[in-house]
């Protein structure tokens, strides 16, 4: 099944019809998406700045991350659900949009970055002066800021 095929099917779902018929539903889901993504960006950004040594909220990085993780996951689930819903409003438009494609790609890279961090980098955060946590923080911050920018750019190019 091709991507066009999937887009066509998605566009015929009750959700897609509700989104295109309603004058307020899309905007409301967008607002929920903003709430979720700001929670993700705020909490991950904080961890990244901590890894970079910019904010020193806590000495123990692992404990710091554990505190913020529930907020990050809540935000991510909300943003992902709302974001997926938004796609139903214009599946073909999103699939054809370069910034949308780029955003999905970068989200996958961000996921890999998290996996690499937990597997290889986090054990090294206890070592003072370790370079890996700094690199990880910088990469994560750059990725999430680009993801948010691409998201905003979709609105201007779709």
């Amino acid at each position: 099944m091709s991507l066009d095929n999937i887009a066509g099917r998605l566009a015929q779902t009750p959700l897609a019809i509700a989104l295109t018929d309603s004058g307020w539903l899309f905007g409301a889901v967008e607002a929920v998406h903003v709430m979720g993504l700001t929670l993700v960006l705020g909490s991950i950004g904080l961890v990244d700045l901590h890894l970079l040594g910019v904010v020193e909220c806590e000495r123990d990085t692992a404990a710091f991350i554990r505190r913020l993780l529930p907020l990050t996951w809540t935000g991510f689930v909300v943003a992902a659900l709302a974001g997926t819903t938004l796609v139903f409003a214009n599946p073909q438009g999103y699939f054809d949009n370069l910034f949308f494609r780029g955003k999905i790609l970068l989200l996958i890279v961000a996921g890999l970055n998290v996996a690499v961090f937990h597997r290889f980098v986090q054990p090294r955060t206890a070592v003072s002066g370790a370079v890996a946590p700094r690199v990880s923080g910088a990469v994560s911050l750059a990725l999430w800021l680009t993801i948010v920018s691409f998201g905003r750019w979709i609105g201007f190019t779709i």
């Binding site: 903003v34 993504l37 700001t38 960006l41 909490s43 904080l46 505190r67 948010v148 905003r152 750019w153």
Partner: peptide, 30 residues
């Protein structure tokens, strides 16, 4: 759009700052 991105980053800072202040009052974090 660039200004909007900066605005969204600002919102993210407000969201995390107020979430941590309010959740601390509720005893749910820190």
């Amino acid at each position: 759009p660039a200004l909007q991105v900066v605005h969204i980053v600002g919102i993210a800072v407000v969201v995390i700052a107020t979430a941590l202040i309010n959740l601390r009052t509720l005893g749910l974090i820190d």
